[in-house]
Computed example of a mutant assay.
Amino acid sequence: MKKVIHKADTRGEANFGWLNSRHTFSFGQYYNPDRIQFGLLRVLNDDIVIGGAGFPTHPHDNMEIISIPLKGALAHRDSTGTEKVINTGEVQIMSAGSGLTHSEYNASKNDEVNFLQIWVFPKEKDIKPRYDQKEFHASERKDRFQTVVSPSDDHALWINQDAYFSLADLASGNTIEYTTNQHGNGVYIFVLEGQIEVADSTLSRRDAIGISDAELISISAAEDTELLVIEVPMN
């Protein structure tokens, strides 16, 4: 087993007034040569946007982009003609493919929105751009993994990569095991809330650990905990 730990307070930070963003990996003005990516996971930004503000229309290509609202809602518009609101409890995925433009704004004029913006390198380049979103009920991840993004699970959002995103809500004192879906994939565990013990390490809110060369990972909750697990190819 190989592991790398990224503590919450070691993340990069960008504060523009309307946006306060914490960057797990190098992004924008934050550059750390030791924090470029984990396997094919390239970006994990923890964004807080004030009411009425957001990201104006901008381009992307050849990237799988996942947004997960943790509090509040996002208003999305893109050049495929999609115009949606993504609420807490939903997950959004966009395959930028051969190229598109999009905007993401706080759907509220008054309340903050906190969401995760995650980028994964695609498996196939220059595909037709696509968009999807889906609601996932918290009751289905109590002390078990709920797959929300997958290349093969019909109940999850499809991704153009051999990558899997799972959520889990663990009660204090409980242990759960994660088994990789594909040989050689690595697993990046991001603690949304709470505290866990994993791979002889203690992780708290917004801490993360990347584990490779392991197909079975045991995670124990030291308190009530919410997790995001991202499984990606390592090359």
Rank of each mutant, 00 (worst) to 15 (best):
V4H: 01
V4W: 02
I5M: 01
K7I: 01
T10Q: 13
A14I: 07
A14G: 12
A14Y: 08
F16V: 01
F16P: 00
S21C: 03
H23A: 03
F25P: 04
F27D: 09
G28A: 05
Q29M: 09
Y30W: 11
N32Y: 08
P33W: 04
D34K: 13
D34C: 02
R35Q: 12
I36R: 10
Q37L: 10
Q37M: 13
L40H: 01
L41E: 04
R42T: 06
R42L: 05
V43T: 13
L44A: 06
L44H: 07
L44V: 09
D46G: 05
I50P: 00
G54V: 06
P56C: 04
P56H: 04
P56L: 13
P59S: 12
N62L: 10
E64F: 12
I66Q: 09
I68Y: 11
L70Y: 03
L70G: 09
L70I: 14
A73L: 01
A75Q: 10
S79K: 07
S79P: 02
S79Q: 06
E83T: 11
V85Q: 08
E90M: 09
E90C: 00
M94H: 02
M94P: 03
A96E: 05
G99D: 08
L100G: 00
H102C: 09
S103I: 00
E104N: 01
Y105E: 01
A107E: 03
K109E: 12
N110P: 00
D111T: 11
E112W: 01
E112G: 01
V113Y: 00
V113D: 02
V113C: 06
N114T: 08
F115S: 06
L116T: 03
L116R: 09
Q117K: 07
Q117S: 09
V120D: 08
F121R: 14
P122M: 13
P122F: 12
K123V: 00
E124H: 15
I127Y: 05
K128A: 13
R130E: 12
K134W: 08
H137G: 02
H137V: 12
S139A: 12
S139Y: 04
E140G: 00
E140Q: 09
E140W: 00
E140L: 13
R141Y: 06
D143M: 05
D143S: 10
F145M: 07
V148E: 07
V149R: 08
S152Y: 05
A156M: 09
A156L: 14
A156G: 06
N160H: 09
Q161Y: 07
D162A: 15
D162P: 01
A163M: 07
F165Y: 14
F165N: 02
F165G: 10
L167C: 02
L170W: 07
L170Q: 04
A171Q: 11
S172G: 10
S172P: 01
N174H: 14
I176K: 11
T179F: 07
T180E: 03
N181Q: 12
G184I: 11
N185T: 13
G186T: 11
E197G: 14
V198M: 04
V198C: 15
A199K: 14
R205M: 13
R205W: 00
R206I: 10
D207G: 11
I209M: 15
A214P: 00
E215I: 12
E215Y: 06
L216H: 14
I217S: 06
I219S: 14
S220E: 12
A221F: 13
A221M: 10
E223C: 15
E226T: 14
L227H: 10
V229L: 15
I230K: 11
V232E: 13
V232I: 09
M234G: 11
